[in-house]
Design a protein around this nucleic acid. Structure first.
Lengths: 212, 212
DNA sequence: GTCTATAGTACGATAGAC
DNA sequence: GTCTATCGTACTATAGAC
């Protein structure tokens, strides 16, 4: 792959993350990459083609690592029940540990909230296998849990995760700078603990809706 | 307030929510509102002025309701410990129950993730009082909890909430349409239960980080 | 594979009549 | 308070030389 192509991908990843997809012009990207305006059209055909390539370059490895960790957990526990925290960690750790220095994090965090239909195709293409495998795994980890509660819990978990990936400026504001966003292992563990406890708490929810 | 001004606000709220802030042109807004291009400049001075007005119109009432519910809870329990679920409900319910028909929901959901510095000023202006009051309330609900864990938990809770506000298309995809996003009371209760359990689970976390 | 040059369109903002 | 008309700028995409 040409050097120019990679420089464009790097610049696009950073600028898309900082300014959003629609607010980032191809001019700004080629300028930051030290490339010519026409290079994007040559290498990626269009702005959408570039966006697709930016996501594809990072999502593949992250999802591969997720599935590897899940494979390891399933191999370890045979056909028995899977520990919820282990499944959750396989889902959470590979993306959290991209690290705060990765320019891809804000894009990962906005993957589900960026407007436009185009990103949906990216999600469908890249997340299908992960969604299937982890849905099965969560059911093996919480066999007594009704499917509906599990769907809600997975939805909430993805929300926490996306919000955390997008950025920790809000966390620094909330904590007046006392929480350390660079501690990726701590973040991953906190998400695993919080989401696992939250997921378990939804079991048999209707009976508990009377708390108020 | 003039009729045109309100029609512009309604159209802007809807289009900003559907397409994002930077991808929505003032032309599209005035066209949808049946107003003249120049009307936005007359009423709101600029695109940023319009965005500010769109947020201000909805954030005020939501945050007022949050504080009212918190006031009621504090009045009920005197100077004692506050029930965590009650504080959480005061924070969550007023925004969740905007209802899926409210065009403001996606904007609320992207409030923390839309790129650009301008929205930060909106947040600072409108969320300061809520942040102060609820930080104190959560500490009263979980007096034994270290501040740091509480900040993390609040951060995660805001993430779940924002993600849920933004839209439930992902939830419908996950659940194959079997979860009902129109059941706002059910959503609010699920968030309250999930986030409260998650928050409690973070207490004394370091000792439990050895699970893996 | 990289460049220059440009077509064709859309943008935010404003001036000035009514 | 609402209109028409327009300025100046920025955009994506492409054609065609090298």
């Amino acid at each position: 792959m040409s050097d120019t192509k990679n420089r464009i991908l790097d610049a696009a990843e950073r600028l898309f993350g900082e300014r959003g997809l629609s607010a980032t012009s191809l001019r700004a990207i080629t300028s930051a990459a030290g490339a010519n305006q026409a290079a994007i059209n040559y290498h990626f055909r269009s702005k959408e083609g570039l966006i697709w390539a930016v996501y594809a370059r990072r999502l593949g490895p992250v999802n591969q690592r997720r599935l590897e960790m899940l494979d390891a957990s399933e191999a370890k526990h045979g056909s028995g029940t899977l520990p919820l925290e282990e499944v959750m960690e396989a889902f959470v750790a590979p993306i959290v540990q991209l690290g705060p220095e990765s320019a891809f994090c804000p894009l990962m965090g906005r993957m589900y909230t960026e407007p436009g239909d185009f990103l949906r195709k990216v999600i469908l293409e890249h997340m299908g296998e992960v969604a299937r495998r982890f849905t099965m795994a969560f059911k093996r980890a919480l066999p007594e849990m009704p499917d509906m509660d599990l769907y809600w819990g997975a939805f909430f978990t993805i929300g926490m995760l996306a919000h955390t990936m997008h950025g920790t400026k809000l966390l620094e504001a909330i904590s007046a700078g006392r929480c350390d966003p660079a501690d990726r292992e701590g973040i991953a563990h906190r998400i695993v603990i919080f989401a696992s406890a939250g997921l378990r708490s939804l079991v048999g929810l209707p009976a508990r809706l009377t708390h108020s």
